[in-house]
Nucleic acid binder design. Sequence first.
DNA 1: GTGTTTGCAAACACTTTGCATCCAA
DNA 2: TTGGATGCAAAGTGTTTGCAAACAC
Lengths: 143, 143
Amino acid sequence: MTQSAENYFISYIKENGLSMTPQRKIIVETFLETEGHFSAEHLHDLVRSKVPDVGQATIYRTLKLLLDSGLADTIETGDGGALYEHAYGHDHHDHLICVHCNRKIEIFDETIEARQEEVAKQHDFKLTRHRMYLYGICPDCSG
Amino acid sequence: MTQSAENYFISYIKENGLSMTPQRKIIVETFLETEGHFSAEHLHDLVRSKVPDVGQATIYRTLKLLLDSGLADTIETGDGGALYEHAYGHDHHDHLICVHCNRKIEIFDETIEARQEEVAKQHDFKLTRHRMYLYGICPDCSG
DNA sequence: GTGTTTGCAAACACTTTGCATCCAA
DNA sequence: TTGGATGCAAAGTGTTTGCAAACAC
């Protein structure tokens, strides 16, 4: 799947008249092989451990491409930052976040999704996307 | 209600060994008489139109007190900023946001709220709060 | 070749903090 | 009187941008 995701990115690049550079390649590969939710800075560190001279601006610019292409998604941390995660081949989900240890669990609830559509319809809105964050205390932290 | 909200703030201040200063008074009053969702900067402007020499740090510090006391709540704008709104005497709600005109509609759905609790329980989380933003195109913008 | 991409550093937007002074209780 | 509060300016944080040099196609 990682391979097809990379191909997907290459297609996206070509379709938009952009170039596939070594920097973009290493960033995308590192992104794809990194599981979970991570910051731009963390991705930058991972990339630099392979290719030391990649600038942070390139990380941000490439993450933007990953978002636009649909390969990546973000979680807003609430304090002005963002975390990134894989979106390609992953179904939509929301997050349940432990306010103590910051653990993030992916959740999905059909009833909620359906009601979101319904609520939007009640207001004549065309729903394009949504974000839902549930904050609480996880079992490990409440013991 | 505005009056009781102000009294509520005064109680909060006293209970925490803090002082009620003229700056805090004018900021809280201005906050309470301003409806809708507004930025710290906008509140600062409104306050300065009455008392010109209130510093922005005092705005932020007082907004923090308003959040802690439960009088205010925030909406994260997603680009690192925040908007503030009244929370005192207002039931919990979420937001439906037009991605074109930025209009924000307050929404509440019991089914969603119930399912959120249910989902948290499934993962043995004690839910403390949540945020849900629905993004779409409002009827005025889709015409 | 030529338009895109890069790294760097500076700029950004929003918020927080250090500090000397000031003030409420 | 004295611990908290203020205004100012500087610092911080995460992200974006201007630019000249470098590169992909």
